[in-house]
Amino acid sequence: MAQQQALITITGYVGANPTQFNKDGMPHASSFRMASTRRYFDNRTQQWKDLPTTWITVKAYRNLSENICQSLKKGEPVIVMGALATETWADQNGKPQSRIVLEASAAGHDLNRGVTTLRKFVKPNDQHQPEAKGTEPRVGADPFVRQGSVAPVEIVVPEDDEAAEFSGDTGEFDGDIY
């Protein structure tokens, strides 16, 4: 019988910049501390009140880990979904210790608190790359990517007359979207 794990979602703020902990030759792995403070409205005082802040360690692996390290910074609002896990170890005196961590399956900025922009990476073996009409694509490296972590990003710049325009009236794009 397969073990079932419930996914939970937590919102909060990045408490420290993500750090890598993987060893050479192993898949990318990282962690960061996250602060989540629940609030409630006190009808008696007619004010919002904070409950104590819950601090949790978030761990991520592989592509998610790489993207977290490049995207999230201390103080930014985040939303993380994943499964809870218990880590155990013995301290310096041999006494057993444990803590609960959130093993992330998805993470990103909390869009209730601001806006963000996605930069999708082109994989070296991706055969479904967009083609610009009548223009040669301009290829360049994303300046925000650490050297050697991902493939170069293909940047396609349309001619001015081919640029897509958004119509607020109809809620649709007019033209090609790249």
Rank of each mutant, 00 (worst) to 15 (best):
G148S: 09
D174V: 12
M1W: 04
G171W: 00
C69Y: 06
T117Q: 10
Q5P: 06
A83I: 08
E136M: 10
G148N: 12
R38K: 12
R38E: 14
A83V: 11
Q20L: 01
P130N: 11
K123W: 04
I10D: 05
H109G: 01
T54Q: 10
N17Q: 09
A107E: 00
G75I: 00
S65W: 02
Q20S: 07
P152G: 06
T170G: 09
K95T: 14
T19P: 02
Q70N: 08
E103Y: 07
A141Y: 08
V156P: 02
K95P: 07
E136A: 15
Q147A: 07
T45S: 15
V80I: 12
A164W: 08
N93A: 14
K23Y: 07
Q129P: 08
V145G: 00
H128P: 01
V156I: 15
P152L: 08
K120N: 13
D176Y: 12
C69S: 03
E172D: 15
P96K: 13
A90P: 06
S98C: 10
Y61E: 03
R146F: 00
E131Q: 15
Q5K: 12
E172W: 15
N43S: 09
M26F: 06
M1I: 09
M26G: 01
N93V: 10
K133M: 11
N125Q: 11
D160H: 13
V139Y: 10
T11H: 05
V80T: 04
T170F: 03
H109Q: 00
R62I: 07
E136F: 12
T53N: 11
Y13M: 00
H128W: 12
S31L: 06
T37F: 07
C69T: 04
Y61H: 10
S167R: 11
I79Y: 02
S71F: 02
Q127C: 03
K23C: 07
E87A: 09
A132R: 07
W89S: 04
D160W: 13
Y178T: 04
N63H: 14
E87N: 12
Q129F: 13
I100M: 11
G12M: 05
E103H: 12
Q127T: 09
T19D: 10
W48D: 06
D169W: 10
G175S: 13
V157Y: 05
I79S: 04
A163N: 09
D42F: 06
E165S: 15
A163P: 04
F144L: 08
F21D: 07
T135S: 15
K73S: 12
G114P: 01
I68N: 04
G114S: 00
N43T: 07
S98T: 02
R62L: 04
T88H: 06
R38N: 12
A151N: 15
Q3P: 14
A151S: 15
F21Q: 03
A6P: 03
T54P: 01
P143Y: 05
T86K: 09
K95W: 09
R62A: 14
A104Q: 03
V101K: 05
A85Y: 08
A60F: 04
P77A: 04
E103W: 05
Y13E: 02
V153Y: 03
M81V: 00
D169Q: 14
I100K: 07
G134D: 06
I68F: 01
K74W: 02
V122S: 13
R38Q: 13
I155P: 05
P27S: 13
G82Y: 04
I100T: 15
P152H: 11
A16L: 02
D176K: 14
T11L: 05
S149P: 01
Q3T: 15
S98M: 05
G94D: 11
